[in-house]
């Protein structure tokens, strides 16, 4: 005796999820959240140039960065900027792939934005067209130099260097905790985003709510981490003072690096004085 399937059971279970434009959540938020973690991951593999400059004290490298950025920004002769641009490009080309991917697109994007900011003025005749290129190249150089230092010098070394430079311990501690927090919370936000992307089935009508929830949850986790950190510090007898271990660096390498920076300044002055605006 045969039994017929009920019509509702005989129907094809074909399921077509409604089309949803959740690209914003999937790509933009996820990518932004993953950025600190990616930077940390990229910083793990030292580049050839960073290995070469490892003995140089972090503070000297930081001072070198400031001097270079000031020279590039103040340069009226583009020849100097092109020399720095070539140096930044070469240093980028020599970086391992993860570092290159974390650096070059960011510097290029910053240059693009700087160029776009000046573009309307150039189009309306209020600024020379060359200013667009000038701004873009200068921005590329300064961002490239800064990211290069950020990837070449671990934050722990920078904290030690700041202590050595008599920066108040409280400032160093807050900056140190903030840096660690950015990386940890970046990973948290990334995990939350991945969970959201995996569980998003069908049409999500509350995208802004989802994004807000991720940010809110990240904030809640931040306060939990802060509480846990405070308890841990109390357990270890923290009495309000913090000290960073002195940085182990070569004095000779520091002097050589400082000489190189002086050469950069001399080149800047020579280009400005001998060649004028170009």
């Amino acid at each position: 005796m045969s039994q017929e399937l009920p019509t509702w059971l005989a129907e094809s279970p074909a399921y077509e999820p409604p089309r949803d434009r959740d690209g914003f959540v999937r790509t933009n938020l996820l990518r932004l959240a993953a950025l600190p973690a990616r930077m940390a991951q990229a910083a793990g593999k030292p580049a050839f140039l960073d290995r070469l400059l490892q003995p140089v004290p972090a503070l000297v490298r930081f001072a070198g960065l400031i001097v270079s950025v000031v020279c590039v920004s103040a340069a009226t002769n583009m020849a100097f900027v092109w020399v720095v641009f070539a140096a930044v490009l070469v240093s980028l080309a020599l970086r391992p792939l993860p570092q290159l991917r974390a650096t070059a697109p960011v510097a290029a994007l910053a240059a693009l934005i700087a160029g776009l900011v000046v573009l309307p003025g150039a189009l309306m005749g209020m600024a020379p067209p060359s200013l667009v290129v000038r701004m873009a190249v200068k921005t590329f150089c300064t961002v490239g130099l800064t990211l290069g230092l950020a990837q070449g010098v671990p934050w722990s070394r920078m904290a030690s260097a700041l202590t050595g430079a008599h920066v108040p311990a409280a400032v160093v501690f807050v900056a140190d905790a903030a840096m660690r927090g950015i990386f940890v919370l970046g990973r948290v936000a990334q995990h939350l985003n991945e969970s959201l992307a995996l569980r998003s089935v069908g049409h999500n009508q509350h995208k802004s709510g989802s994004a807000g929830a991720i940010m809110g949850m990240t904030f809640v986790r931040a306060s939990i981490f802060a509480g846990e950190q405070a308890e841990a510090m109390a357990c270890r007898g923290y009495d309000g003072t913090s000290t960073a271990a002195p940085e182990r660096a070569s004095r000779v390498a520091g002097v050589l690096y400082a000489l190189a920076i002086i050469c950069v300044v001399a080149l800047f002055v020579w280009f400005e004085r001998a060649m004028g605006v170009g």
Binding site: A79, W82, V133, V137, F271, A274, G276, G278
Partner: peptide, 11 residues
């Protein structure tokens, strides 16, 4: 207007 026309830089 090329940035470095003919591979040259002023000065």
């Amino acid at each position: 207007q090329a940035i470095m026309p003919d591979y040259a830089l002023a000065g």
